[in-house]
């Protein structure tokens, strides 16, 4: 049965769906880009939740910690490493897509995708 503990996961999925909605339904290039960002952060949030542990400590092992006891208390550090990588990749994509949108604006004089359609067939 779903409990309150599942709520953050539901929010992450809701965020994901909001981003998808923006990409499918919006006609403005900038809003499409915002949709992409929202999707990306929804996935990052989901990864973060996977490593979360209630009342856990930061995954930094010091000399005073006993390894076995430390392992039982710490949150999972791996998803955090994944998120860092995903953020960097997202930054690269975002920079490129923004540059493309600006160039498109130069060419067409609009951000409206219904007016940017020289390709068809």
């Amino acid at each position: 049965m779903p409990t309150l503990d599942h709520l953050p996961y539901l929010f992450a999925m809701l965020l994901f769906v909001i981003g998808l909605y923006a990409i499918v339904a919006k006609k403005n290039l900038v809003k499409l880009i915002l949709g992409l960002i929202v999707i990306e952060y929804a996935v990052n949030l989901f990864l973060l939740l996977l490593g979360y542990r209630g009342g856990g400590v930061a995954p930094i092992l010091t000399r005073r910690d006993a390894p076995a006891e430390f392992l039982a208390r710490t949150v999972d550090p791996l998803p955090q490493a994944l998120i860092l990588t995903a953020i960097v990749i997202g930054l690269g994509t975002l920079a490129l897509v923004t540059a493309l949108a600006l160039r498109l604006y130069d060419r067409y004089g609009t951000f409206d995708i219904t007016e940017i359609k020289k390709l068809k067939g």
Partner: peptide, 22 residues
Amino acid sequence: SEELEASFKYLVLGSVSSAFIL
């Protein structure tokens, strides 16, 4: 113009698919 348009379309769909993969 056409190349930018194609690239934008490709990028948006490609990024969504990457999000699903992740």
